[in-house]
Design a binder for these strands. Structure first.
Lengths: 204, 204, 204, 204
DNA sequence: TATGAATGAGGGTTCATTCAT
DNA sequence: CATGAATGAACCCTCATTCAT
């Protein structure tokens, strides 16, 4: 009985509305500035109603975080597989994934920001350790290892290099999200130039 | 308030205390979590007193932003001059400045975060356009131009490259600030590895 | 609700569950801290369901009060009868009942507290006048009369003496319930000492 | 400077009003039913104002508790001293103090209830251990010891006897507070009868 | 029968801010 | 110059309860 209850509630339309409202509000105003009332107002329900679907404010962000993380990871993995299927070499696969990282972040600012801004104790803990923010990291590490093995990049500590790559990608994404650069064209250029430059730096 | 000269007010000791308390609180708790009362408590004055020195909460952040920006720029410029005085070539000067960027950011998280996190309408606007966050950028651009001229890096659009460098540096700083990496030693490694890698990518 | 006979509803299993959950919750958390939702959660039904069986929160307490009162009375009567059957004299019967009073109270804190703490207007009114909290009192009065008649205690206003005994017993119970006294052994000692002392005071 | 601030605030008239309003509300409605808003309404100030004088709701009860406790103790001590000064023997002093206990409780129901009902973690802890609810108890113990020494009551474990006396007194007070007994006259009778009876039970 | 949906009222509390002194 | 007093608005959240199904 409980399962039915839960499933029904999880697929509820209102639940969806709440999540969507929250996503857009969190994006535009930040976690602290978003109140349950604001979410309620946006979906035109009473604040109390929200508590039928989520235990508290944090639960909403947690859901968004998990959702965002899962989408993020899925996107990266898919792009990686496509690239491999297309016969790209390890280095080009890495570049493709890197590109996908930045593009996901800039295309889904609401998720990317939640993913990285969350100061929420429980959320951070869960997410960081548990919910696989590092699975994307592992993808990176294994990609690097493959590229080292096929000789396209120099040998080295793959954990260090992966962190370094991540820094670059996060910086790119973050800047693109937070500053208005002139044109979309220059964004593309910036992304590919930065990625190319970095990987040229570790290439043989 | 009327018969006090502006200079006097600005150099007041209490004003200093407010700024310092705010800086440390913003750092530890984030903008949204810091209240006027908390600042007042910390400096052991009444909340009202703060309003003698600042029109409102935002004015405090604005001041911090300006202060932080100025310190940031000064630090970068100083390091650049030192490096030039020491006879380093253009590329090494660039690397030195880059290193200084990350180190300032990680050593002064209170400023760096305010500089970049500010969702404050007026602050962001002012800061970006007005208060010269781009002066640091110009430093970068001119450094790159010099390196192109002396042939240590490849020719290219210096605006694009500067943005790219900035991305990398911001990503590094941001990650170092927001995640706990194992040891300080690995931080140093990460910084120099990333910077070296990037510049190797644009080197001849 | 209409086509169900009252008896059926009253003997429903869910009804029982509600009462039991409420009893234990009231005990552990106090009336004000217990919510319909908490009761519902405990029995794994929806809050709404409770309203099929009870008009409101107060009705639940009222029921508990009546139930507790009946159990209390029954226990006291049974002990009195047992004591008489065992051939104890009137004074010893009184002591036995007194002992039973305190033991019931400490063994069933959930009932005892509801019986005496209820600030609920309607509950208090009903209970005091209606629901026979005084039947226990009558038991006491008749026991005292018997002891006066057989000469084991001094003559006197039995209503006054009964109230006095009740005070003592309530005080004992209340203290034992609300304060943690060192050991169970000392509890027994305290009970028998107090009862003995009091009755020695009215003995011939 | 801080001391002045504090002293001024502690002697503030509004603070007094808050305490008085709270005292009467707590008495009539119980801790849980009393809200900051209700207190505020009663004194015709905004709820926020209360927070200028008390950190939170609990702090108000704590103050009442301490105040009540101190008054209670003082009353008992004073009566004990008076009795001794009047040349009463140890047993009569004990009876006088006992009488004073019940009379204080019934005359100050708001304090007595707070003193004994407080389920508040911190309040209970402090009060029970710290704030001297047991100082009254010590008074009792030393009174008993004196009476044992002068031979007016039987030898025995004074801790046990004191607890027993306390039970009786608390029971009396509690019943008198919670139930409406017919007349004031019978209250007096009940009190003296109960106390006399008990002490006759431990007399030689 | 039992429930999911929904809410208005109210809970304690914190906030930035104003104003008279 | 600094403050104490005061507040309205908002915060997250829980409550008992109703109603249609």
């Amino acid at each position: 009985m409980k399962h039915i209850k839960r499933r029904e509630r999880e697929s509820s339309e209102i639940r969806r509305k709440i999540i969507e409202a929250a996503r857009s509000l969190f994006l535009n105003q930040g976690y602290a500035e978003v109140s349950m009332r604001k979410i309620a107002d946006q979906i035109e329900y009473s604040p109390t109603t929200i508590y039928h679907y989520f235990a508290n404010k944090e639960a909403i962000v947690r859901e968004l975080l998990i959702e965002g993380n899962s989408m993020f990871l899925q996107t990266l993995q898919q792009r990686a597989e496509e690239a491999q299927a297309a016969g790209l070499n390890a280095l080009d696969v890495l570049k493709t994934v890197s590109d996908a990282y930045v593009r996901f972040g800039t295309a889904n600012p609401e998720y990317y920001n939640i993913l990285f801004i969350s100061n929420l104790e429980s959320v951070s803990l869960i997410s960081l350790i548990d919910s696989g923010r590092f699975k994307g990291f592992e993808l990176l590490e294994s990609g690097l290892k493959a590229a080292m093995n096929d000789g396209s990049i120099t040998q080295g500590d793959e954990r260090l290099i992966a962190t370094s790559v991540w820094s670059m990608l996060h910086g790119l994404t973050s800047l693109l999200l937070n500053f208005d650069f002139p044109t979309a064209k220059s964004n593309d250029e910036l992304i590919s130039f930065t990625i190319d430059t970095f990987f040229r730096g570790v290439s043989r």
